[in-house]
Computed example of a mutant assay.
Amino acid sequence: MIARRPFLQLALGAATLPLAAFGARAESFPSRPVTIIVPFAAGGPTDVLARIIAEYMRGTLGHPVVIENITGASGTVAGLRASRAAPDGYTITIGHWGTHCLNGAIYQLQYDVREFEPLALIASGPQLVIGRPELPAKDLKGLIGWLKANGDKATAGTAGPGTGAHVAGVFFQQLTQTNFSFVPYRGAGPALNDLMASHIDIMFDQASNSLPQVKSGTVKAYAVTAPSRLATAPEIPTVDEAGLPGLYIAYWHGIWAPKGTPGEIVAVLSKAVMAALDEPAVGKRFAELGQGIPPPDKQGPASLRSHQAAEVEKWWPIVKSANIKPE
């Protein structure tokens, strides 16, 4: 027994080496730039939010935070890339209600949108129910009445099957018992252009995208899909005030790491994101984009995980009951 003790001590010491080495790696993280995968083109709402956050994360992490735009299939191409990235904290991804909730019910994915490691819930922006400038309805109740009377010819623009505008329209139909046709476009921009030109009748659009047109009078705004009014457009009533309580739809954004990223590294990244959100300049820029930042106690990994789970529970049955399929 005595002769074996040095061997046993050596074996136990060797067994602790990987753990010690990992601890050292976690303490030195990051030692090089971190990449944020953005699932949409440069210049879009998600890309803009990512670049704002990245700018301030750099100061906390001490290394550059690089943006990588990977487009295609409503964010699923980027989702697959992010899911297959090494779980070492050097590749993370930003996403939203569509990419990390709706896509899981619409697409046959090679990954699970619920299995990423959450870092932080960073923002939430409601949609607007908007209409073409000549639409006769003066308020939301009037719009619902007009749609019921003109369901055979009324049209709603979307950024394609399964996108937020489409799913929001389906939810609206279910709540109001209306029936109108959806017209898919290659993006929200072309759809909004056709709404302004009165080629389509209505649209459910991110407030950050259509507020300038509402302000200029080139489209009508009937309601904001949130329980409170927008600070940047207080004249637009909420759906509750306009007579359709419960039509809550928000493009919330979060940041995730690949499944299996160590907890110590998740904590470092989460702290960097939340420090960026605490910057007054970030709050100001987000507000200008129609995005509200959650309070600090609602930003962390646990909050993002629970929020995503609640959204999946709410929206997946709606998507599946409507048999929404990608093109």
Rank of each mutant, 00 (worst) to 15 (best):
N209S: 15
G59I: 02
G300A: 08
K325D: 04
R5Q: 12
G23C: 03
I122D: 08
K153G: 09
A197I: 07
I318D: 00
A207E: 13
A156W: 04
F116T: 02
A3Q: 11
Y185Q: 13
E288K: 11
L277E: 03
L289R: 12
R51C: 10
E134G: 13
A250D: 13
G260P: 03
H307K: 13
R186P: 14
E311L: 08
H253S: 14
T60F: 10
P190G: 06
E279F: 10
A310Y: 05
G164E: 03
G217D: 04
T46S: 15
N323F: 09
A221W: 03
V77Y: 12
A272G: 03
G169L: 10
R25Y: 12
V129G: 01
H166Y: 03
A50T: 08
V170L: 00
L121Q: 05
I70F: 00
K298V: 12
R229G: 06
N323D: 11
D47K: 08
A275M: 09
L147E: 06
Q177C: 15
I122C: 08
A149M: 06
A85H: 07
P39R: 07
L17A: 04
L121I: 06
T218Y: 10
S216C: 06
R285F: 05
I2W: 11
M196N: 12
G300R: 07
I255V: 13
T232H: 08
L61H: 01
W256K: 09
A105M: 09
I265N: 00
H253N: 15
D297G: 11
T261G: 04
T163G: 03
I92K: 02
E55N: 13
V170I: 09
R229T: 09
R186E: 14
T99Q: 14
T163L: 05
E279K: 12
I106K: 06
G43D: 05
P126K: 03
P295H: 03
P87S: 05
D278H: 11
L121Y: 05
D152Y: 10
E55P: 09
D47F: 03
Y248L: 10
A322P: 08
L12F: 09
